[in-house]
Design a binder for these strands. Sequence first.
RNA 1: CGGGGCGUGGCGCAGUCCGGUUAGCGCGCCUGCUUUGGGAGCAGGAGGUCGUCAGUUCGAAUCUGACCGCCCCGACCA
Length: 487
Amino acid sequence: MGDEKALTRRAEDFSAWYNEVVLRAELADYSPVRGSMVIRPYGYAIWENIQRGLDGMFKATGHQNAYFPLLIPQSFLEREKEHIEGFAPEVAVVTHAGGRELEEPLVIRPTSETIIYAMFAKWVQSYRDLPLLINQWANVVRWEMRTRLFLRTAEFLWQEGHTAHATEAEAEEEARRMLGVYRQFMDEWMAMPPVLGRKTESERFAGAVRTYSCEALMQDNKALQAGTSHNLGQNFSRQFGLTFQSETGTEEYAWNTSWGVSTRLVGGLVMTHGDDVGIVVPPMLAPYQVVIVPIYRTDADRSVVLEKAHRVAALLRDEDIRVHVDGRDGMTPGAKFYEWERKGVPLRIEIGPKDVAQQQVVVVLRVAHGDVPRKESISDTGGLVTIPGRLHRYQAALFQAALERREANSHRGVREYSKLQELIEDTGGFVYAGWCGSAECERKVKEDTKATIRVLPFEEFRTPEAPDRCVVCGGEAVEEAVWARAY
RNA sequence: CGGGGCGUGGCGCAGUCCGGUUAGCGCGCCUGCUUUGGGAGCAGGAGGUCGUCAGUUCGAAUCUGACCGCCCCGACCA
């Protein structure tokens, strides 16, 4: 790969394209440990921006960060029956430490419900202690059979929110609120508009009463579960003795929620916006929103061009734009253009002797949308102030393009099973159709097409005319379902 | 775990079928000069126990056996 200049095209082999793009944009690299990856500085910078955005939103909704241990007593995991059944196959266990066998094995957290609710039980006595709204940024380990950079790795980074409430209604409200926070983040920061809804029983989180999900549609028309939020009911509070004394003096079990997004979002970003040149990063998440490439021939040109480049950079920094001057010598401008395009930088500014003489700069967008020219010259005086607006419009255009792609690949009102099969096999995308609510019909579709019900969509995503028949068995439809193959 | 592919300088590969003595090529890297508005050119240079172990042979990157690892496709999952 290293030297081959052209990337595999998406249409040719999407999966090969994805791997090449991730490696060549220097987002991540394979590590010596099977199934785990190294997140490189450029990829980590994107993750840091994701963290920054979400963290602000969590705090604005009243949550606080804390940190719980990586190692959990095995017995904790085993207390909630469904939970251990769901996670047992993929849990890594520490059996030895300090040179001898441990009395009780410790599991490396695949998720932290058990240890967190055990601690909540110590901290909560009264209804006055509720709600307890905690988030943690952490790593977790799930020993998956098959791994893919960012999308599924043995160890990954995420955030997991865990809350305790006095009433069922409050917990339900919280679970839905945080799903909404995810949606807002995916729309506004990632320009990756998801479809929201509830998971079916078979796709529900192990130990939850209800699971809600944000499902995004990738460019290969496969769905990506981008964020989930769970109403845990009292399943964990009962197992860990998380009780409180109510206003009327009775002892009650608390109601819990948990919700999370992971470094998988970076993979979603790649597969939502990337093209045959490389990744495309929305300005809100871009490590560099603007990269300035100086162009010069002589030493005299070099000093005046670099001087201007740094002056422009300083000006943009005053506007809170993340800007980088690529002053590397011995690399031609063309090579720099390709590199930053591969890395998805939203806006490039070229400054050469001509631009110094004419008091202008050349601005080039990573991707042109609509009538906006990809490349234009703008003046030093009136032009540079337009850059924040240009980035803003670019962000909006990426969102619009992703939304249009999602809708163009959403097939509504599918009534015949053969049509559903044909759509899944041939074109992919989200297939909206009626469902009778039976696990058998769900399983049949999975066996026949590998597609699953991604969500039972919330009202705003539903087709105006509700389906009356189950697309599989023809029985009465109780809900509209969104089917797709998924990552 | 089933199927497929692959382990050779930092990266990508050729050489392996048909063993033969200095193991090649491209990219990258280092030095110098010329270059620089879409992946620069020339010259010189550094860098390799050919995945591991055992065997066959006068001789193994090449043949045999075992093992290890990685990637891709599937079943399971954020």
